[in-house]
């Protein structure tokens, strides 16, 4: 792997290599010394054009546990907010000698452009409404740890599919790894062209829940309401929110996942979010292990392609 830009392009072997490597990284978190010297002397730049303390911190912890130098380059308050172009920023990072650039950007595809302009590895930490590959990898890792496998599982992804990079990345990755993915949303939030995705689409959450091994809830932004994607918050919650009754309709072993940040009371009820079936907190811890794995696999060897 040279870059990690999407899960759509990730092969099954590469995806499994990340998950297996993450298993090793997870053991580091249990040690008294949580640091490895592996990436000593390497520079990782966190280039965030959107605020995301959660994701940025996760990458920062991951890079530091591998002894990399971390530079946080946030768009706010820097030359970027003064109109500097992405290309100029890329050239600045080049001059700093960045070995890897972790890029979060509001425009879909921005990391693809960056990858053409820098010599180092580019990690997509979320681009617009396109992909968020490390989130999907950590979700897959979490499912595999809890349920022991991915092959043959039924995973239901519920929410704003149209605007969700998490949904896209999970849909590709989980289907690559042999899970059956069902997407549930009001028809307004299902993209035109979804027929070509390796997933089923349903508008009826209650029909899908009893057959789901994992239910992944997506954040629904309130501003979607004003754009007429659905009439009211109350109606959305009634039809697509996960509450205790719906949790009870799921198989007893089924998991509830949420990439965060959650809108409690909207797509997920508080008691569901905090239940033992919920993996929300584990997902955060697993995020560090998976990101360590990705950093190691991208930076832990020679630059030359083998």
């Amino acid at each position: 792997m040279r870059h990690l830009l999407s899960t759509e392009d990730l092969t099954r072997d590469d995806a499994l290599r990340v998950l297996d490597t993450a298993e090793y990284m997870a053991t580091v978190a249990d040690r008294s010394v949580k640091k490895l010297p592996t990436l000593r002397g390497r520079t990782v730049v966190n280039l965030f054009f959107e605020d995301s303390t959660r994701t940025r911190t996760s990458f920062e912890v991951a890079a530091k546990r591998l002894s990399a130098d971390v530079i946080n380059f946030s768009a706010r308050g820097s030359s970027v907010s003064k109109g500097e172009s992405l290309k100029d920023t890329a050239q600045t990072l080049e001059a700093m000698g960045a070995d890897a650039v972790v890029c979060r950007h509001p425009a879909s595809g921005a990391p693809y452009r960056l990858a053409r302009w820098v010599r180092g590895s580019v990690l997509n930490a979320g681009d617009g409404t396109h992909e968020h590959p490390t989130q999907a990898l950590l979700d897959a890792f979490t499912i595999r740890r809890r349920l022991g496998r991915l092959e043959g599982l039924s995973v239901t992804i519920v929410g704003d599919l149209l605007h969700s990079r998490v949904a896209r990345s999970n849909m590709w990755l989980l289907s690559t790894l042999g899970a059956r993915v069902t997407l549930v949303a009001p028809p307004t939030l299902v993209p035109v062209g979804v027929e070509q995705w390796p997933a089923e689409v349903s508008y009826d959450l209650d029909a899908v829940l009893p057959k789901s091994d994992v239910v992944m809830m997506l954040r629904v932004q309130r501003e979607r309401m004003t754009a007429a994607f659905f009439p009211t918050e109350r109606e959305y919650t009634r039809r697509y929110g996960l509450d205790a009754d719906r949790l009870a309709a799921m198989p007893p072993s089924a998991l509830v996942m949420h990439p965060g940040p959650m809108v409690r009371g909207m797509e997920i009820a508080s008691d569901v979010a905090d239940s033992t079936r919920s993996t929300v907190v584990e997902q955060v811890a697993n995020g560090v292990s998976v990101r360590m794995a990705v950093l190691y696999l991208l930076l832990g060897g020679t630059r030359e392609v083998t």
Binding site: E8, S108, G109, D127, G128, T129, H130, E131, H163, R165, R168, P191, V192, G193, V194, E195, Q196, W197
Partner: peptide, 18 residues
Amino acid sequence: AQMNEGAVSARLGLSGWP
């Protein structure tokens, strides 16, 4: 709108021009 609305825009997460 960023590109033709269809299978490719759905994949790329670019808003569609129907």
